[in-house]
Amino acid sequence: MNEPVAAFKNALLALDRVSAQEVLQESIDRQGVVPTLETLITASLTEIGRSWEAGELALSQIYMAGRICENLIETFLPLGDPGRRNQPRLAVAVYEDYHMLGKRLVHSVLRSAGYELRDYGRVDLDSALRLVAEDRIEILFISVLMLHSALHIADLRQRLNLAGLPVKIVVGGAPFCFDQGLWREVGADAMGRNASDAAVILQELTGGGL
């Protein structure tokens, strides 16, 4: 971990918005906004995600770090700014239940990394199909907490295929962490072990060409 990333990560975890903003400003002055999204923001959030997986950090810290990060980057790169990344059409949703935190974290990570995305809130099979079709979504991030909701994603995958909608599905949430093969079983294209994986997976799915 390089020095700016370590400093930014530490500031986020200390809920020190002022220090985080200083590190961010210094990076933007040095290399510009878009490279900073990659080398500082995504790198820091990825480190934070890894630390959570290792049991070194708690979810509340990730939530607060993401919130500060998202807020900071939007002061430098407001939504709708032409400097935001050229990207596929993205959406994030919770499937079938009301456990919204995972979705909120993914939303924060992707917005902090400079992406714009639709937030569908809670969806079920019918509403997910309708929204994906209407908005011509290319990559759908789905968060679940419950096993049965995770298993139901297989129905969504099948119906999307039948409808000829070429959307990629990225899943995340507890059931996928406790059963490593589950994401393939339900027909997802990728699985994030933590919210910070979202930005990395997005780059992988798009060949890094954003």
């Binding site: 239940d97 009301y98 419950m146 049965h148 909701s149």
Partner: peptide
Amino acid sequence: VIFSDDGPPNSGAP
């Protein structure tokens, strides 16, 4: 409370 046929009941909107 939202009931399901194949999983535990879940709390609905807060």
